[in-house]
Simulated assay, not measured.
Amino acid sequence: MTASTAGSDPPVDGGETLEQMQARHRKEQRDLQGRITNKKKNATKKTRKFVNDECAELERQLKERQEEELRRLLGGGGEGEEEEEEEEENGVDGVDGDGQSRQGPQPSSQVDGLAATLNGTHLSSSSGNASASPSQPGPKQKRNRQKERLARRAAEQLALAEAAANEAANMTDHRAVEREAMQREFAQHKLKEVEIAPDGHCLFAAVADQLVRLGIPVSGGAREGGEEQARPVPGYKAVRKAAADYILGHADDYAGFLAAEEGGDGGVEAYAARIRDTAEWGGQLELSALANAYGVEVRVVQGAGRVEVIRPSTAADGEGEGKERKTVWLAYYRHGYGLGEHYNSLRAETDG
């Protein structure tokens, strides 16, 4: 999927002031954030990675364009001004507007004037700001316009940074809000979190961690590799296979859900193969399959301050509703990780 352009470049040389440009940049950022939110909200499990990449590209393009506009606006005047700056930097001899000769580098008093400006004091607009007192007339010193411009630009950039910081402070920190809600739920249920690597296998690795904690066999002794290098199947792979096998064995139960999500492309067999053999993300369907495959109750703590419960069907469980089932606890994040949705394992605080 190719990221669309973040927006056409508006003119920056048509009389737009720094304040107007900052206001327009803030509006563009809000509009883009709204577009990104809608894209992520409407993304499916299959398109989520591509949508995230597209959104990152849109943000990068907008940032680069706005930075370029600021550089163009704050870059000063045209060729004549650039030549004057070069002359002043190199100490080229010339004559100022009052007919006074200027020679070589500017006096140290001009450097003092720049330091005063950066500390909040305005430079004098008079070309004779460093001249001697009336009782002791002396040669008139030329204003160092280049240093004035540098000081002015520094002040404008500081104002821009402060405005951006104020706007950021007023934005909702979804990651912090989610984390706070999750911590409340953990405390209420006396749970502690076990970090799982955000590598695409997180749901299956978290379930594997829970099954080991509960004493439930994960792989059934299965091994992979040749006879000489046979090794136990990693937990997340065994759990992936269990989910895929259950979906294949109950294709009629899952066909309707997969048709709606996959657009009817590939069927149950192709979907189960991706779950078993690739880093395909897992979700609600896989949790349902795993609850039935292992006969456990899955409880998922979510950032909205609620716990979703997924139970195995009675037919698959082979027991009545009164059976005491073991419980798998998971934490589900929507905003807490840079790659997107993520699952961690949860254990009782008393567990080692």
Rank of each mutant, 00 (worst) to 15 (best):
G215C: 08
L214C: 03
Y236L: 05
Q188D: 08
G215K: 05
G226I: 05
E193Q: 15
I216Q: 06
I216K: 09
K192Y: 06
E228S: 14
S219F: 02
E195N: 13
G235T: 01
I216R: 09
H189L: 11
I216T: 07
A230N: 10
G226Q: 09
F186P: 00
Q188N: 10
L211C: 04
K192G: 09
S219E: 07
G200V: 00
E224L: 12
C202L: 04
A187Q: 08
V233F: 06
G200R: 00
A230P: 08
G226D: 13
Y236F: 13
A230H: 10
E185V: 15
V194M: 13
D209F: 14
S219K: 04
F186Q: 04
A222H: 07
Q183I: 04
A230R: 13
R184I: 09
L214Y: 01
A230K: 13
A187V: 00
H189S: 09
K192F: 05
H201W: 08
R223S: 15
V233Y: 05
G200E: 00
V212Y: 13
P234K: 07
K190N: 10
P234E: 07
H189F: 13
Q210M: 09
P234H: 08
E228Y: 11
L211G: 01
F186A: 03
E227Q: 14
S219P: 00
G225R: 08
A206M: 07
G200D: 00
E227G: 14
A206N: 06
G235V: 01
I196E: 01
I196H: 01
V212L: 12
V212C: 10
L191Q: 03
L214D: 03
V194I: 14
G215V: 07
A205H: 00
A205N: 02
A208C: 05
Q183Y: 04
D209M: 15
A222T: 06
P232D: 06
A187N: 07
A205W: 00
C202P: 02
A206R: 05
H201Q: 12
K190Q: 11
G221W: 04
V233R: 10
R223C: 14
K190T: 04
L191V: 01
A222S: 09
L191W: 01
H201L: 11
V233I: 12
C202A: 05
L214E: 02
A230D: 11
V194Q: 12
E228H: 12
I196V: 13
L191P: 00
R184C: 05
E227Y: 12
R223Q: 15
A205C: 01
E185C: 12
P217V: 06
